[in-house]
Amino acid sequence: MEDFEFSLKDSPILLPYIRNQSPMHGCYAYSTTEAVSALFAVEYNEAPVELSVQQIIDQMPRNFHYEQKGKKRNKKHECYYGSHVDALHYAKSIGLFEDTAYPKRESSWDIDFPEPLPNEVKYKIGCVTRVRTADIDEKWQRERFENLVTAEDINRVLEHQPMAGAIRVYKSFVDFKGEFVFVGNAVTIAEVYMGRVGNEDADDKHHGHSILIIGWGRKNEVDYFHIKNQWGDEWGDKGYAKVRRDLIYRLAYPEGIFQVGDAAKKKKGKDVPSSSGTRKQKAHR
């Protein structure tokens, strides 16, 4: 079969730049906010808006009782290691402010949170859909919570909107440059990231890493997801990468979105088409 790719990379529903999460372990907040923002862009036929990662980093662990559950925390930056699944459920139950209303800091605090913002718009989603495919390593599957679907089911959703997903981080992933994998002094040509190299140990400081899935394809008989990362544009192929498909797990995406607040907008028309010209398709069955 010939090589091919579908990607939302240049779609107007994504933020037109690569963000950098800096030292804070808030990857789950970045993938969640852009997944929600993209859904807003599709359903409201508007440009995407940058939503507040800081709100998720600050408030979501409090709402989900991370301290009482004994969740791990970065002591230097006072932020919890979280999950995009939890963050999406937070967007469903609480809603997300825009970044301008709740701007980013370089730490998370237990005190001195912004005052309630009743006049600011919040973006709330209708539900969170979690899916898995049979080729994902069993230890990363959550059968009780994830719908078993096919690759084609997932592709149909990705024609319309991105998904959040997780990947185990190895040094080869950290060093991935789109076409090259650096392992010591050796250089391997690998346009698609193929996973662990040799006896690499997982990078425990990341505790798994959340990314945005924006497309899929096949290269040299390898099926892959096209992802958007938040490690700046010097990582991967200017912030993007092709990753072997079965390496990504915890797939989740939002469905339905609305705004609350005095300045909330009404949807522009009904059944707004996706960026690919087709209406939304669900992956779950």
Rank of each mutant, 00 (worst) to 15 (best):
Q21I: 00
S107L: 00
A41Y: 09
A101T: 07
I211D: 04
K139N: 12
R168P: 07
V272P: 05
R73C: 00
V53A: 00
Y249L: 11
K242P: 02
H25E: 01
L247N: 10
K122V: 12
E146L: 05
K76Y: 05
E143G: 13
G215H: 02
L96H: 03
K238Y: 00
S11F: 11
G126P: 03
F258D: 11
K177M: 09
F173W: 06
A202N: 07
G215S: 04
D203E: 15
R245P: 12
S172A: 13
R168G: 08
F173K: 06
I111A: 05
Q259H: 10
Y102R: 11
I154L: 14
F173N: 05
T188L: 15
Y102C: 10
T150Y: 14
M60F: 04
V169A: 06
D99R: 11
N45I: 04
H209T: 07
A164T: 15
I189V: 15
S83E: 07
Y44M: 03
L8V: 09
R244M: 15
S210P: 04
V197R: 09
G256S: 09
A91R: 05
V169E: 01
F176S: 07
K171W: 08
Q54G: 04
V131W: 00
M60A: 03
G239L: 03
I214H: 01
H65K: 06
P12C: 01
K69A: 13
K228R: 04
I214K: 00
Y44E: 02
R130T: 13
Y102H: 09
Q68R: 10
P162R: 06
Y44C: 01
C127W: 12
G236Y: 00
Y30Q: 08
R62I: 14
A91K: 04
M60D: 04
F173C: 09
T278F: 15
N155K: 15
M24P: 00
G126A: 05
G215E: 03
L15V: 08
F4Q: 04
P273Y: 02
A47N: 13
K228S: 04
G236A: 09
A202G: 08
V128L: 10
T33S: 14
K9G: 11
K71A: 08
V121F: 00
A241P: 01
F6D: 10
P23F: 12
R279H: 14
S37H: 09
S276A: 06
K267Y: 05
C79N: 07
M163P: 02
Y249M: 10
P118F: 03
L247Q: 13
N74K: 00
R19S: 02
I125L: 07
I13M: 06
P116K: 01
C79Y: 01
F180G: 02
F40N: 03
L96V: 02
A151Q: 14
S31F: 08
F176V: 07
G198E: 11
Y81L: 03
R73S: 00
P61A: 08
H284K: 10
H25Y: 03
G70S: 01
F64W: 14
H226L: 10
V149Q: 05
K280E: 12
F182A: 10
L15P: 11
K124R: 13
P273N: 03
T278K: 15
N199E: 15
